[in-house]
C-alpha cells in the first residue's frame, strides 16, 4: 500500500475521522478531534507503529501530519 495513504489511514483511525478529511498538510488544532490530548496519543501511537522515537524537544515542532510522516521512514519499520 502507498505509505502516505497507510499513514493517513492510521491517523484517521486514531482521530475517528474519515481518511478523506486528512492530508499531510492537516495541522494540529485544525480539526476538533486533534486536540492536545489526541496530540499526545498520536505521538505515542505513531512511535509504536513506526518504531521511531520522538524527543521531548521535538514534540512542539511536530505540528502537521506531514511532520510525523517525515519521521515515519526513519525507524525502518
Amino acid at each position: 500500500m502507498n505509505a502516505e495513504r497507510e499513514f493517513l489511514d492510521f491517523a484517521a483511525g486514531l482521530f475517528g475521522v474519515d481518511p478523506s478529511a486528512l492530508s499531510l498538510a492537516t495541522a494540529y488544532g485544525s480539526l476538533p478531534e486533534w486536540d492536545s490530548v489526541m496530540h499526545l496519543r498520536l505521538v505515542m501511537e505513531f512511535e509504536a507503529k513506526y518504531g521511531v522515537s520522538i524527543a521531548l524537544e521535538e514534540v512542539p515542532a511536530m505540528t502537521t501530519l506531514g511532520d510525523f510522516f517525515a519521521k515515519a521512514g526513519k525507524g525502518g519499520a
Binding site: 496519543r41 505515542m44 521531548l56
Partner: peptide, 18 residues
C-alpha cells in the same frame, strides 16, 4: 512510564502503561 509525557502534560504513563 514515559517521562516525556510527564513533562509535557503531567501524564506519567507510556502507551504500554496506558
Amino acid at each position: 512510564y514515559d517521562e516525556r509525557m510527564w513533562k509535557l502534560a503531567r501524564m506519567p504513563w507510556s502507551l504500554t502503561g496506558l
